[in-house]
Design a protein around this nucleic acid. Structure first.
Length: 416
RNA sequence: GCGGGUGUAGCUCAGUUGGUUAGAGCGCUGGUUUGUGGUACCGGAGGCCGUGGGUUCAAAUCCCAUCAUUCGCCCCA
């Protein structure tokens, strides 16, 4: 046991997990492409700078959770802890500004050095969508509604709810930040140790604290609304109206603050209460300043990401959806004909697996186990007549079928 | 990074106040005579009791450490 373990916080994905994992990626992209999204894959590691400049140096992700290392040339590289930075870097590196607006969907592993827990891994996987060059409130609405449709397509819309908030524009946010610092400074000694740190680094996050005393102090804190300037306010109102127009219900949560520094205006989370502390399943927001901050032309944008492992846990078991046909040749003289038949059936698009070993009793038991719909029995008797026995595993009916009619019969069976 | 729980067969778990060859169910596998399954019956394989130390005549059982996992905090998807 102690000899060959996977690295702490990593795991192998196979069997049922693999079904779900790929189902999540396939279905979510299928939904996103209806909105005009294309796929993008950016490298799994980038220059460390890419993340320092985007995520924010004071965030926990950057300050203590990154897998950073030097390559043989001494360059500082980092395994990506999230997807947005890479997509934005790609926009800039490839000079794709003339292609804006760009809608990009990605899926893949992310890495953070955190204490592992259920639904929280050091190598975890996300699907995400970035809408670059997205200007109007309607693009926020579209991004959120697309996220909802993704969750719906996965059958999870019943177990989650949508929370939204606004962080306003830069001016509103810095005015609010100053007010919060002034307010919390008065209670500094009563705040939890964590929140005392936040006071200096990211005072907005104190609002998010789960510490009871912090919550009490926060409840009297100045509300953001008073600091939102007119344009920020209008913007957010239009987002809300847009959601209502689509019939999407949401909860306003003025304590909702995202952990990455680059967010502004709309932020949102789809949450569940079925996963304990890992209740956030999909989250995102607008990041108008990020592209410029990373050295590109000023480009408004909005995006979101979802944790595949968390979605996985909310989903029911999935089964193989291709009907399976089991080939059972009896006696070595039939083997080459069986192989030829399987080759042709597979070319015609059928899933055919074979079982050469043991008596028929065993083979039928195994055919059951893998959920075969049909079984083909090919013995010497059949071979001499140029037929096979085709058995419907569910009804138990079985008929002689001429070999040149076999593909047609199988197709008919699957269609009925 | 902090605090608590858990760690016995592939899986889910028993294992009495420390006491001979460590158990069950499921799964896997062989059989119940010839080429027909989902049932029943009878066999079989499979365990350095997470790992390393310690206490003891004797440890799966007690102590320490370590690793993994899990719950909460933190953080976030």
């Amino acid at each position: 046991m102690s000899k060959l373990q996977p690295v702490r916080g990593t795991r192998d994905i196979y069997g049922q997990l693999a079904y779900r994992h790929h189902h999540i990626i396939d279905t979510s992209f299928e939904v996103c492409r209806r909105y005009g999204y294309d796929r993008i894959s950016t490298p799994i590691f980038e220059f460390t700078n890419v993340f320092l400049r985007s995520i924010g140096e004071t965030t926990d992700i950057v300050s203590k959770e990154m897998y950073s290392f030097e390559d043989r040339k001494g360059e500082s590289l980092t395994l990506r802890p999230e997807g947005t930075a890479g997509v934005v870097r790609s926009l800039i590196s490839n000079g794709r500004f003339q292609e804006l607006p760009l809608k990009q969907f990605y899926a893949g592993p992310m890495f953070r050095y955190e204490r592992p827990q259920k639904g929280r891994y050091r190598q975890f996987h996300q699907i995400g969508a970035e809408y670059l060059g997205a200007e109007e409130p309607r693009s926020d609405v579209e991004a959120i509604s697309m996220a909802f449709n993704v969750l719906q397509a996965l059958g999870l819309d019943k177990s989650i709810s949508l929370e939204i908030n606004t962080l306003g524009d830069e001016d509103s946010r810095s005015a609010y930040r100053d007010a919060l610092v002034a307010y919390f400074a008065k209670y500094k000694n009563d705040l939890s140790a964590d929140s005392q740190m936040r006071l200096e680094k990211n005072p907005l996050r104190i609002l998010d604290s789960k510490n009871e005393t912090d919550k009490e102090i926060s409840s009297q804190a100045p509300a953001f609304e008073a600091f939102l300037n007119a344009s920020s306010k209008t913007y957010f109102e239009n987002v809300c109206k847009g959601l209502e127009n689509l019939g999407l219900s949401y909860v306003l949560n003025d304590k909702l603050v995202r952990g990455l520094d680059y967010y502004s205006h709309s932020v949102f989370e789809f949450v569940t209460n079925e996963l304990g502390a890992q209740g956030t399943v999909l989250a995102g927001g607008r990041y108008d300043g990020l592209v410029q901050q990373m050295g590109g032309k000023p480009t408004p944008a909005i995006g979101w990401a979802a944790g595949i492992e968390r979605l996985e846990m909310l989903m029911p078991d999935l089964a193989e959806d291709l009907p399976v046909t089991m080939m059972m040749p009896i006696g070595e003289t039939t083997f080459s004909e069986a192989e030829k038949l399987m080759h042709d059936l597979r070319s015609a698009g059928h899933k055919v697996i074979s079982d050469y070993a043991g008596n028929l009793k065993k083979r039928f038991a195994r055919a059951d186990k893998v959920g075969a719909k049909l079984a083909i029995i090919l013995g010497e008797e059949e071979l001499s007549k140029n037929v096979v026995m085709l058995k419907n595993m569910k009804t138990g009916e079985q008929d002689e079928v001429e070999i040149n009619q076999l593909e047609k019969k199988i197709r008919e069976n699957h269609e009925s």
